Simulated scan of single mutants.
Amino acid sequence: MMSLPELFREESEVLTRSQAVAAQSTLSAGDYRDALLLLSRDYQRLMRETYRMISRSDRAERELNRANEQLQQLAQALEYKASHDPLTAVWNRGAIIQRISQTLQHGAAALIILDIDHFKKINDEHGHPMGDRVICALVARIQAHCPEAASIGRIGGEEFTVLLPHYRLADAVIVAGAIHASLNAAPLAVLPGQLVTASLGVSYGKPGSGFDALYSNADAALYDAKNHGRNRVFFR
Rank of each mutant, 00 (worst) to 15 (best):
W91P: 02
I116R: 11
A108M: 11
R56D: 03
N65S: 07
A29Q: 07
D212A: 09
G153V: 08
T161I: 11
R93E: 00
Q72K: 05
L114D: 02
I135S: 00
S28I: 12
A77L: 06
Q72P: 06
A67G: 02
A109D: 03
A172K: 10
S55T: 14
P129W: 02
Q194G: 05
P165C: 04
Y80L: 11
H126L: 11
R93S: 01
H106P: 11
L87H: 12
A110T: 14
L169V: 09
G210W: 10
D115S: 02
I54N: 04
R17F: 03
T88N: 03
S55A: 15
T197D: 00
A198F: 08
L7V: 10
V196P: 08
I135M: 03
R154F: 13
I97C: 09
I100T: 12
A189W: 10
C146H: 04
V162I: 08
N65A: 10
P192R: 02
V21D: 00
H180W: 04
S101C: 09
L46T: 15
A75H: 15
V173D: 01
A75I: 12
D34H: 04
G107K: 02
R133N: 13
R41D: 10
I113T: 06
S3Q: 03
K81Q: 15
A109Q: 05
P207L: 05
A110V: 13
S151H: 14
A181L: 00
Y223G: 01
Y204Q: 03
R154C: 13
I142Y: 12
A220Q: 02
H106V: 15
S101I: 11
A60Q: 13
H126A: 12
A221H: 02
Q98G: 14
A20L: 13
F235R: 06
Q73M: 14
R41W: 11
I96K: 09
D132H: 14
L138K: 05
H228R: 11
